[in-house]
Amino acid sequence: MRQEITLTVPSSTEFLHVVGAVMSEMAALAGFDDRQRRRIELAVDEACSNVLLCAYQQESEQSYRIGCVKEASELRITITDWGQDYAFPAAGELSLPAKLPDPSSANIGLYLIYQIMDEVTFVSQTQQHVLSMRKLLHPSDARP
């Protein structure tokens, strides 16, 4: 059964743990085991941190929206912001962070997102950016 929640989150790092807790619970409801719950929480945290850093440049008076859809065998998360334009490199453009001479937290974060999620797409529209992430529930990742 398809179920969805939507959060509107202030653009402050203070709320990252709140988002993480909600995403972790949604992942559990979708059937993911503890390890995958933590990984999904991390990927969403990285995506939100990237919005705060790149789109809003640490300005805490804005907000962004997170949609999370739970389906029978997958979780889909969409993050929408209305901040400044920023680049979101494709997976192939990123190197292992430890091999870079001076990786930023954004570089490391994007690398982690691509390692964890099954599908990642970024669309930059007029005054709006939408990051969509999809995680499939494989039998080996399911709660016992």
Partner: peptide, 12 residues
């Protein structure tokens, strides 16, 4: 209990 890229960058 939790570490993200921002923590890794500080360790770097």
């Amino acid at each position: 209990g939790y570490l993200s890229s921002a923590g890794l960058r500080v360790l770097l």
